[in-house]
């Protein structure tokens, strides 16, 4: 019974975990690649150039 309930709920929310992971991943990429706050920009500078992000 418990197993059934778990399986049903897992299938029902199957898209949500993927969606949340995509949002989290894109959030990290935006932070390391795009945000122009100077501390972030300076720390990520070399990586942004080497990874093909527009830097400055």
């Amino acid at each position: 019974m418990t197993t059934k309930t778990l399986k049903a709920s897992a299938a029902g929310t199957s898209v949500l975990p993927a969606l949340f992971a995509v949002v989290l991943g894109l959030g990290i990429i935006t932070l390391t690649g795009h945000v122009q706050a100077s501390a972030l920009h300076d720390a990520a500078h070399d990586v942004r150039h080497a990874t093909g992000f527009p830097c400055h």
Binding site: P17, L24, G25, L26, I28, I29, T32, A44
Partner: peptide
């Protein structure tokens, strides 16, 4: 920052 960036890519890919 490279590890972070590639972790971001990897989360999107795994999803």
């Amino acid at each position: 920052f490279t590890m972070l960036t590639y972790t971001g890519y990897a989360l999107v890919m795994a999803a």
